[in-house]
Design a binder for these strands. Structure first.
Length: 460
RNA sequence: GUGGCUGUAGCUCAGCUGGUUAGAGCAUCAGAUUGUGGUUCUGAGGGUCGUGGGUUCGAGUCCCAUUAGCCACCCCA
């Protein structure tokens, strides 16, 4: 009856897309493992209380809430009605909803750490790749269901962790063949800036405005700062700060002059210098200090990261930073941490745009056996058994058809080889193997089939 | 949550200031071709023009409502 549809902002992923996405995800996961991180998965849904109030007022509105069951049960109906009245007034009511789809991976992780801090070995290093849901209105590159890909270390204040994350970024993007710039800054520098302006209370506002710089330009940032209650004198200081340029060394020198005399300024500079020293010792070249980097989220307290792809017009494809207190909201204080995130959808788009996916990524079945009759298929069946035992994926065309059809099927499934066993081959115990990309074909003994295919296999 | 744009064949889209039977390319199917695909040629099928209402002698075309998608803002990945 009704037309088949999927919910707004969600997507089906076809075979080719899944394979390409898996290629990205596998690369990232293997690098995480290489650096000693362990996987964690948490449920699709959390208790609503776990999520509410953890983001922002806006964030709360964007949480997908799950309706309780049994609301229409006669013995509940009065309560349900009362609860609904509450909801209409913008409140939440446990009677109506007490569970919600997770909104990000960080808060569920914090909940997990708070629940299990007695059992965990600290520093605890975990990575997590799972879908999250937001009731946002979808638009370009923005979905209601999307994957986040996070790694965090909690229970350690050592800056070595930050260096490791920079190395992880470099390692992953090098493997994916994406040219990137890894930008760093310290929130302590931004704190120092707000102190210098005598506007410590406006730190968040300053951060949010600066964060928009590369998107809206300096004039509009000024406008926003003005709107957020800063006077021209203060804005001047900020403009001076944003004007800092040169290479890493020159930038540090300039920022030192501007706010090296403040306590947090000094600390921030130390953090950045530590990272530069350590990472150059590890052979990492692409780290760039960017004082205009701010990051929207205001729980960051130390080093912050952002990764930008070169040669394409695209927002950041990764970001993260240090936070002081992950689990305090769940009653377990003093667990600091640092984490990063990969934007899988954007990485996918970048790789698609620059044609960076290896050709062999989209390959399922390697060999298609043509169906040329019953006796022929029976032979094909026993050969398939042998190939599969040797880890060569293969399938038999489902019915006897014209060559045309069978070839087209193979072509569409991106199958590399056609194996033909017809009456001639049956008599001579041979098999005709055709490489569908080059068009070359050979006749081989059936017993040599697996070996032949392995040799003809172009890559890997 | 606020604003803008768009809904015509499976897909991408034409369709003029309203006018007879709504088109093209690609895809599909059949044939040229009963052991050789990706090229070519011939033919065929496929549409209550998103849905509901209105204006009109007449609506794919104009108006209103509704719904879905896209894009932008807010915010964010």
């Amino acid at each position: 009856m009704s037309k088949a549809t999927i919910p707004q902002g969600t997507r089906d992923f076809s075979a080719e897309v899944v394979r390409k996405r898996n290629y990205i995800i596998q690369t990232i996961k293997s690098v995480f493992e290489l650096y000693g991180f362990e996987p964690l998965e948490t449920p699709a849904m959390e208790n609503l209380d776990t999520l509410l109030g953890k983001y922002s007022e806006e964030g709360d509105k964007l949480i997908f809430k799950i309706l309780n069951n049994g609301l229409g049960d006669p013995k509940n109906i009065e309560k349900s009605r009362a609860a609904f009245e509450n909801v209409l007034q913008g409140k939440n009511d446990r009677q109506l909803t007490e569970r919600a789809l997770k909104y990000d991976l960080t808060i569920p992780f914090a909940r997990y750490v708070a629940m299990n801090h007695g059992q965990l070995t600290f520093p605890f290093k975990r990575y997590q790749v799972q879908p999250v849901w937001r009731a946002d209105r979808p638009q370009k590159g923005r979905y209601r269901e999307f994957y986040q890909c996070d790694a965090d270390v909690v229970g350690s204040t050592s800056l070595v962790n930050e260096v490791e994350f920079a190395l992880i970024y470099a390692n992953v993007f090098q493997q994916l063949n994406i040219d990137v710039e890894i930008k760093i800054n310290s929130r302590k520098i931004l704190t120092a800036l707000s102190e210098l302006c005598h506007a410590k209370d406006k730190l968040t506002g300053i951060t949010v405005a600066i964060d928009k710089l590369d998107k809206i330009g300096i004039e509009k940032v000024e406008g926003e700062l003005l709107q957020r209650g800063l006077n021209p004198e203060q804005i001047n200081i900020i403009k001076k700060y944003l004007g800092i340029s040169g290479n890493n060394k020159e930038k540090i020198k300039q920022v030192e002059e501007l706010l090296g005399h403040t306590e947090s300024g000094k600390k921030g500079i130390e953090e950045l210098e530590f990272m530069l020293n350590y990472s150059s010792d590890s052979g990492l070249q692409s780290l760039t200090i960017d004082f205009t980097l701010a990051r929207g989220l205001n729980y960051y307290t130390g080093i912050i990261f952002e990764v930008k792809a070169q040669h394409v017009q695209m927002g950041s494809i990764g970001g993260g930073g240090r936070y002081d207190d992950l689990t305090g909201l769940f009653g377990v204080p003093d667990i600091p941490g640092v984490g990063i995130s990969f934007g899988i959808d954007r990485i996918y788009d970048v790789m698609e745009e620059l044609s960076l996916f290896p050709k062999e990524v989209h390959q399922g079945t390697q060999v298609l056996f043509f169906n040329l009759g019953d006796a022929e298929s029976t032979k094909a069946f026993s050969l398939m058994h042998e190939l599969r035992a040797k880890d060569i994926s293969c399938e038999l065309f489902h019915q006897q058809s014209k060559f045309d059809k069978q070839f087209k099927y193979a072509e569409r499934k991106n199958i590399s080889f056609a194996a033909l066993i017809g009456s001639r081959e049956l008599e001579t115990n041979t098999c005709t193997v055709k490489d569908l990309r080059s068009g070359k074909q050979v006749s081989v003994k059936q017993s040599d089939l697996a070996e032949t295919i392995r040799k003809m296999k172009p890559e890997g």
